[in-house]
Design a protein around this nucleic acid. Structure first.
Lengths: 228, 228, 228, 228
DNA sequence: CATGAATGAGGGTTCATTCAT
DNA sequence: AATGAATGAACCCTCATTCAT
């Protein structure tokens, strides 16, 4: 955790440092990121840096928490009109959030992904810290709920399925954006709403079908589901 | 591509260098790997290294090609008893190969995964080099074939599905091995055959069901599938 | 000399700062001691430090004077029952005090030793400051008195002998404590009186004999040897 | 131990580096010595340094071994005319060597003293390395021999006496040189032989008497001796 | 008088790469 | 073809000290 001196800084300075750090970590991952570069770009003295943070890892953890906070706030902003959401609606919405996050904050998304891949089996949040926000954990909860609501098959190995979903969740954003290339800017700046652009929704439908119903050909099932 | 001086080396020396490089890249990723460490462990002169490879990246690319070669050879060795395999049998077999690869060559698997994540959208093989062997490409072929054989729904977005499968394919090995912890050694050294261990196959079944039929509850479908 | 602002501080705060500084100097010597560590542990502001002391050396000198004061007070407390003490009784008592000091205030002893070794020929006390309290000076006085009392041979080079005694005096404490290992705690907390523990006194006797009578065997032997 | 690359260097370069390091360690002790200063003064690149030595401590140990080697060689050169030397003759000669060492190689002597004081109870030489050369060990041997030859009183606690002698031995050189100030240069460059300068020998006599016979007044003995 | 942010030189160490032999 | 010494920029981090508030 950054030292309190960091939080005593003026907001503008603090945010400058954070922005510079985000650039650096996004571009070079943890290992490749350079404190020297960061302080140079932020226009602060080397010594000052170490009065704000105990070390490089401390800054990194701070940035990671910003990533989570930012994502959570985005989730709040994206709360769907209908608060009653069925199981798969919720799943689609989560993926949608992931894509929006990647779209609006590509650097933060990159950092998050790096962190996930650093050790994908570990829970990112420290024990005792606020709500567990790690995706794998959330998916585990989601699956448990889904089984209780009879939306998800009881034979599903929850632990594995959660890992499976998390893997897709952490990677698919990048892909979808590449596919939506021309639309990406429009969506990111809000001039197009991701939830209502038909072509984008087509892509989503297709992905969700993969996840929901699998790729096996079961026409009757699919039809039922989509005609609901 | 390594200089020709490298290929003039005795096989044993060449393989030593490669083995050391594999250790290093697996343990520290590209960025963290150290040429100094590699030459020290391989017992060659610093100068010699730069007579074999143009630079660090050159060596890395070479190791990457070894990874692919090794995987392909493993695939050949694992040709299933029945050469006629249906679409999903093939898919299960690919995942099985991925797990075996992770099990038998964890370092190569780690390197492969790192490379995939470095830029998951790029084709790993250099243009002009041998056939594209990247997983995404293979999955694209697989899906195309599957649709032609009427095993896969024609509405599936092949490009996205290939990326989707590749993501799972690259990550799931690590997870499955963690789950199979106690069995891992036995399988790796051949005293247990991954294709016949019932508990392991259960895990696989569960995963394949996620991939094949999705997680939606459609009991009648599933029953049909399993009674096949 | 600390600035007067330091002496305006509350006693508790002043003593806290001193205690922290003693820890630091004892553990790391002058050079290795860190102002940053000291202010952190003392819970004072960096700036405040430089309002109390002109610089690091200033603090160090202050601590040194504390060491001397503390030792002098211990000397007073240890005044032996019989105020009439012969020359060698006095010497033994001084060594005893040195050991007790090492035992009861190991950190102060460490600091004192460091300072002595930094330049053993210099008089520790600043010119103009209170009485010279340095051990070498005290030994010089002791020797002068001893000669006057006819206890010490007049041919002794007082200056050199004082240096000789000071050397032993500054180092022997550590050694004796190592030898008395199991007794050390008991003596330090007062449950064993160093002046009455027979085994400890044996060690002392042996040392004092070295110092008093030398290591040569018996006078007549000496004669033979020297008359050769 | 320095890397072999160091020993492949030209003698002149190697000795330059050693000389510079000796200057630095003598002037600043281990902790205060700066690798940056050393490489700057030696005119080599920072990186080169770390190709010669594994780290700062490695260089320091190397310098320490030079100190010992140098001292041993000096001992050989100073072999006294009569190879048959009695116990106390040997002791006097050891002290004489220590003084000569301090005189001829004041920097090495400073380094040795620092090392001794860093932890005076430890044996400097690594187990398994060549002969134990540490002074305390040599004194222990000396005392054991002395007792066997009936020159030293059997009641002497050998362990403590060895520590006692080592303390004096390590400190007294500095003092004697300060006393001999005007003679020092003449002795160091050989124009005056330390073994035959009467005033210097007086000082030695006085010291040796302290050590040998103690400071106790034994008029008859001393009288005889001094009237020789 | 207290504060604590700011400083930048310096600490030891590792890096990928070059080049004369 | 092989060597391995040389390089110096870059790494993360700590230092004693200053100064505006």
């Amino acid at each position: 955790m950054p030292k309190k001196t960091f939080f005593n800084l003026s907001v503008s300075k603090r945010e400058l440092i954070e922005a510079v750090a985000i650039d650096e970590f996004a571009a070079n991952s943890y290992r490749g990121a350079s404190i020297s570069q960061i302080v140079a770009k932020a226009g602060i003295a080397k010594g000052s840096f170490y009065q704000y943070f105990v070390d490089k890892r401390d800054l990194y953890n701070h940035i990671l928490s910003i990533v989570q906070t930012c994502k959570i706030e985005m989730v709040k902003d994206m709360t769907p009109p209908s608060s009653v959401m069925d199981t798969f609606g919720y799943l689609r919405w989560m993926i949608q959030v992931a894509v929006m996050f990647e779209l609006k904050h590509p650097k933060l998304a990159k950092i998050e992904q790096d962190a996930f891949l650093e050790n994908p089996l570990a829970n990112e949040s420290e024990p005792g810290e606020q709500e567990a926000t790690d995706a794998t954990v959330r998916f585990r909860d989601f699956l448990t709920q889904g089984i209780m609501h009879d939306d998800i098959a009881p034979w599903v190995d929850i632990d594995m399925a959660a890992f499976f979903l998390a893997s897709v969740y952490h990677q698919i954003g990048q892909y979808l954006i590449a596919r939506m290339a021309d639309k990406a800017n429009a969506i990111a700046n809000g001039s197009v709403d991701i939830a209502f652009d038909p072509l984008t929704q087509d892509l989503f439908d297709n992905l969700m079908d993969l996840v929901e119903a699998g790729i096996a050909r079961e026409p009757q099932i699919r039809k039922d589901y989509y005609s609901k």
